[in-house]
Design a protein around this nucleic acid. Structure first.
Length: 615
DNA sequence: GTAGGGTTAG
């Protein structure tokens, strides 16, 4: 066999080339032997682009006068893999202009570009092109189409208002990561005007369904794509139904299916179903899968099973930044702040680069520990790493500074955010509420409503807390009623607690009693705040009634015993005090002293009740 | 051509 035959064989079967080094060797040898033909050069480009060597591919590509489809396809794929999305679309247009017929290898990467650019119009026109070329029955192309529509739904749906038209302020343009700024800006301008035209002719999930139903053959990727599309867009029952249906095509759930399904049970806080999936994972040998590992950690953490989450994390054979984030968030969400911080440090030590999620997961630990010093250090890290344009990161910073006592810094960060979502509004409103600045809190709440951002359950907790701290009874009732009437949110324990607290402090004890009694299942904690109001307003009769309510639902509530005993003492009913203390001794009830702490000048003094040791 | 993790709660 001559050298030429060997190289031709290699070029015909590019899979034999197994490293970048081999690819470059082959290139060098071919250059030495003969002037390479466009076909051979295209195959080399294809090999280079498979190894993601964009620079080498482009150098070769630019030597071609009329590049063959294979060369175009390889460069487009390589552009997308390197995040040069605008360039990939531009090259596709150039290819069409040169009269080349795209084959079915071109579209999957191109459709991925549309998804990453969040450009529905472009995606739909490429879909049209696919249909005209008769490629709408190609398996890979259809899978990519479904993926694109599913991803677009996820970005566009939340930015649509009630009329189905796009709210520009809520539509966040993706970062195109292109190094050609002018091209990028042109693209964004075009994209904006396109997006403004979007009317909701039907949801993009309908398009996913249509493509799926039209397909002649479906493989496991097709099923996984349509399952993930439904799961990511909150259509949980549809997703689970599809998992059951894929068996009819003789397909079994694989690791992709499972990591799309697990977050559903996490969302449902369904430990039982989650464990069933865990068992399936173990039986089918998916327990080394880092994707599934992260989902399992998240599922156990959400179900308050931190021990199980830790166990899954500890036996993971490999960890990436997402599995670290899962365990960090899992600890923090369950109140294990120090453990969360320890994992964060361990992650840095393991040389895993933090991502925005790492910061938004760890920051609540600083906020709840009121660890200002640490929070500031992380803030520095965030600024240096350029993570501060992330809405999750900024919201967590607003919350941290507010909780650590720096409401002005919190407001400064809030004002410098590009866009505000409901959570960032809620964080700053709650900040003002905690600082007793109800006017600011209420004014911001109204600004939020005016900007068309719908408050949710937590946002009402924030504004009601503000009212309650400032004794603003009328405003509180207005918001409490507006919650159900205008937004259809059923008031929960926290909302009732604010109202009861407010009524109690104002001395309207009977009204408070009535309000709490009207609740479905009032918890002990809410009665306790009324009991405390009874003490302030010296109403012993009601206090006894309230205390009995607490003992009914929570017989071990030591706060209730202490409060009632104090109320008796204040009324000089010493016999009742003694009776109560006898009862407490019998039941083994002891009050754990509460304490507070605050970080001042890098020191954290701790206070107990009546403590005068710190000047 | 397909997957996992995040901010707000007296």
């Amino acid at each position: 066999m001559t050298a030429q035959t060997i190289f031709r064989t290699l070029l015909d079967r590019p899979n034999i080339i197994s490293s970048k080094y081999q690819a470059k060797q082959l290139h060098a040898q071919i250059l030495k032997l003969e002037p390479a033909s466009p076909t051979h050069l295209s195959r080399l480009i294809s090999i280079y682009s498979n190894f993601n060597l964009l620079h080498d591919s482009l150098l070769l590509f630019n030597t071609l006068h009329s590049p063959p489809v294979l060369a175009y396809k390889s460069i487009i794929r390589c552009y997308v893999a390197n995040g040069l999305l605008v360039q990939s679309v531009a090259l596709f247009l150039q290819m069409r202009a040169s009269g080349k017929q795209p084959d079915h290898h071109v579209f999957p990467s191109l459709l991925k570009s549309c998804a990453l650019l969040s450009d529905l119009k472009l995606g739909e026109s490429i879909h049209g092109c696919i249909i005209r070329l008769g490629m709408d029955f190609d398996l890979y192309t259809c899978n990519a189409l479904m993926n694109m529509y599913g991803k677009l739904q996820k970005v566009i749906e939340p930015a649509l208002d009630q009329n189905g038209s796009l709210n520009q302020a809520r539509y966040i343009l993706p970062k195109t990561n292109a190094n050609n700024t002018i091209l990028n800006q042109c693209y964004r301008k075009r994209n904006c005007s396109y997006m403004a035209e979007v009317d909701r002719r039907g949801s993009m999930m309908d398009s996913v369904k249509k493509v799926f139903e039209m397909m002649l053959e479906r493989d496991v990727v097709s099923w996984n794509t349509v399952i993930a599309g439904n799961a990511e867009n909150g259509k949980y029952e549809e997703a689970l139904m599809l998992v059951r249906e894929m068996g009819n095509d003789n397909l079994k759930p694989d690791s992709f299916t499972l990591s799309s399904v697990l977050p559903i049970f996490t969302e449902y806080v369904d430990l039982h179903k989650g464990k069933e999936i865990h068992a399936y994972v173990i039986r089918h040998g998916f327990d080394n899968d880092v994707f599934i590992g992260s989902s399992l950690v998240g599922m156990y953490a959400k179900c308050a099973r931190v021990e199980d989450a830790l166990q899954v994390f500890n036996i993971l054979p490999q960890r990436d930044s997402i599995s670290w984030n899962s365990i960090i968030a899992g600890c923090v969400q369950n109140g294990l702040f120090d453990e969360g911080l320890r994992f964060f440090h361990q992650m840095l030590k393991a040389k895993v680069k933090p991502v925005p999620v790492s910061f938004s997961s760890i920051m609540p630990a600083c906020a709840n520990l009121m660890a200002l010093h640490l929070g500031k250090q992380l803030h520095g890290f965030i600024i240096r790493g350029g993570y501060d344009d992330n809405i999750f990161v900024s919201s967590s910073l607003v919350d941290m500074y507010a909780k650590c006592g720096y409401i002005k810094v919190a407001r400064w960060i809030f004002d410098r955010m590009d866009v505000h979502d409901m959570v960032s509004w809620t964080a700053i409103i709650m900040g003002y509420a905690l600082h007793g600045q109800a006017c600011h809190a209420i004014s911001l709440f109204e600004q939020m409503e005016m900007q068309g951002v719908r408050p949710n359950y937590v946002a009402f907790v924030a504004v009601l807390t503000a009212c309650s701290h400032a004794g603003m009874m009328n405003a509180a009732w207005r918001y409490f009623n507006s919650m159900t009437q205008n937004y259809g949110i059923v008031p929960g324990l926290e909302h009732y607690a604010c109202m009861a607290d407010l009524l109690g402090r104002a001395g309207k004890l009977d009204e408070a009693f009535e309000l709490i009694s009207s609740m479905h299942k009032p918890a002990g904690s809410i009665w306790l705040s009324l009991l405390s109001a009874c003490r302030v307003h010296k109403n012993v009769d009601l206090a006894e009634k309230v205390a009995n309510k607490i003992f009914e639902v929570d017989p071990e509530n030591n706060g209730a015993y202490i409060l009632l005993s104090n109320i008796y003492a204040a009324a000089q009913r010493w016999k009742d005090v003694a009776k109560l203390q006898y009862l407490m001794r019998n039941k083994g009830i002891k009050k754990t002293p509460a304490f507070s702490w605050i970080e001042v000048k890098n020191k954290t003094p701790v206070f107990v009740s009546g403590d005068k040791s710190h000047p």
